[in-house]
Design a protein around this nucleic acid. Structure first.
Length: 336
RNA sequence: CCGCCCUUAGCUCAGACUGGUAGAGCAGUCGACUGUAGAUCGACUUGCCCCCCGUUCAAAUCGGGGAGGGCGGACCA
């Protein structure tokens, strides 16, 4: 398998750190980081879940970029946050967190430069708690509400839901970070952190936000609900093929309306960052194999008609399968 | 604590006044058409009608109790 490390050598550190990011806050701060990335700490917080899905893997790709850039990575296994969100008992949450950790390592996070931290290791201590109460005092309910995660259907807003983002803000200080990473859905949390940490005399850290990939079947962007089909670590090769094949994929990078092309997005954010070379295997009657080393070339060919969506899909599912295979194997071990 | 309103398909909701074991839109599934998907046609599926007790030949519907959710309870009045 041709997972890349060397392919990134032609990118400079700043480009590597920021590639595929939707938003960098702020550019100057991140450039400063890029000047001397060694030993700098970046993090993503995840609510433990037993099986990783494509959304987790998108931020994981970014973490791998950051490791390749020389940074240290902290993965917060946010058990206390999960608890606040009603995800079960601490025991249950820990168990899924351990599975999550194993899958991240199988996926390709570097064992030596990745630190996995449980929230409960420090979030229940007195100092943290008092800081949290200070933040509660400083933050309007309205502000916290805007930063909190969207509620699931039928769920009622609880006090825990507004405490949640405040804790995320504090984590950035307590984990001693230099960079906060998250999907675009986390931007309000990070902005809140940037605004409020100084009131506790803590430093402001830059943030980097990855895109939210459009819903596979509809192509609808950002707001895509959790009802959609999602690719996960436990998908079999066949399920993966089926899901990718049923994905929305007009032969264009920019479909009408607010829609995105999810197949292209998956190539851009999941395949090309991790493979030096993408080979489209095609029967002779359709023109034979094609080889790409850059996403833009593939997208341009899809647009021009040189690459048919059906061939793009077949290729996509086989590369995704390769990415997922180690984690799938790991899950099987864990469950046996 | 008090008052009013809500709870029916995965979702948004009709149906309740005038009891007769449930409907629409969207979603979903399957075909047709496309070398993908979508769009478009064609077909199809979906229900502890929040729970318990009662009235009745018969309860989603009426009565009582309970649970969950929403809104309101200074002045203007």
């Amino acid at each position: 398998m041709s997972t890349s490390t060397n392919a990134d050598s032609d990118l400079d550190t700043y480009e590597l750190i920021t590639r595929n990011a939707d938003e960098v806050v702020t550019d100057e701060e991140v450039r400063e980081l890029a000047d001397d990335p060694d030993g700098k700490r970046a993090y993503v917080g995840y609510e433990p879940s037993g099986v990783l899905h494509i959304g987790h893997l998108l931020t994981a790709n970014k973490l791998i970029d950051l490791q390749n850039a020389g940074m240290e990575v902290v993965v917060l296994l946010a058990d206390v946050h999960a608890y606040l969100n009603g995800k079960g008992s601490f025991e249950e949450i820990r168990e899924t967190a351990e599975q999550m950790k194993a899958q991240f390592l199988a996926y390709g996070l570097d064992d030596d430069t990745t630190e996995f931290v449980y929230g409960s290791e420090y979030q229940l201590e007195e100092e943290y708690t008092l800081d949290l109460h200070t933040l509660e005092l400083e933050t309007s309910l309205n502000r916290a509400q805007r930063a909190m995660a969207e509620l699931q259907g039928g769920e009622t807003a609880k006090v825990s839901h507004v405490v949640y983002p405040l804790m995320q803000a504090l984590d950035i200080e307590y984990l001693d970070l230099d960079l906060a990473v998250g999907g675009m859905d986390q931007r309000k949390v990070h902005m809140l952190a940037r605004e409020e940490l100084p009131t506790l005399d803590y430093d402001v850290r830059p943030a980097l936000h990855t895109p939210i990939v459009a819903d596979l079947t509809s192509g609808e962007g950002k707001m895509s609900s959790s009802t959609g089909v999602t690719i996960s670590m436990e998908d079999s090769t066949e399920e993966l093929e089926e899901k990718v094949n049923s994905a929305f994929c007009p032969p264009t990078r920019d479909p009408d309306g607010d829609l995105e092309n999810p197949v292209l997005e998956l190539f851009e954010y999941h395949v090309f960052p991790r493979f030096e070379e993408v080979v489209v295997e095609r029967p002779e009657k359709y023109g034979g194999d094609l080889t790409y080393t850059a996403y833009d070339d593939l997208a341009a060919d899809l647009e021009s008609g040189e690459l048919h969506p059906a061939d793009a899909k077949g290729t996509l599912s086989s590369y995704l399968d390769e990415l997922i295979a180690p984690g799938r194997e790991k899950l099987r071990e864990l469950r046996s």
